[in-house]
Amino acid sequence: MEQIQRKRWIRPCTLVYLVMIALTLITWWIGSTAKGGLELSLMVLLFALVKGQMVGDWFMGLHFVQGIWRWPILIWLFVPGTLIATAFVLSYGG
């Protein structure tokens, strides 16, 4: 059977790469121009966790894995991410 190949305008990994670059630039901009603050710190942390999940899913290839090996990176991001967020909330008297 003849297969019809559709040409992708961009590879998924390239799209992920560009999103990660954009989030990194926003993080740097926040660090360079703002004076900090709990909301900005948590936003920056969230960006980092999203980027981490992108690396796990699309660069490490865990998006294409089923079963327990699908989750280690997500769990790794969640646990220290939650602890870091808790410590920062507490440092602001939360």
Binding site: M60, L77, I84
Partner: peptide
């Protein structure tokens, strides 16, 4: 190739948390 790649992505992954934590969050 996949084994080396997985290790290198881990190095990248760690830095993605380290960068905001140590350099930006305050």
């Amino acid at each position: 190739v996949e084994t080396g790649a997985s290790y290198w992505h881990m190095v990248d992954l760690v830095w993605l948390i380290l960068f905001p934590l140590v350099y930006v969050m305050r």
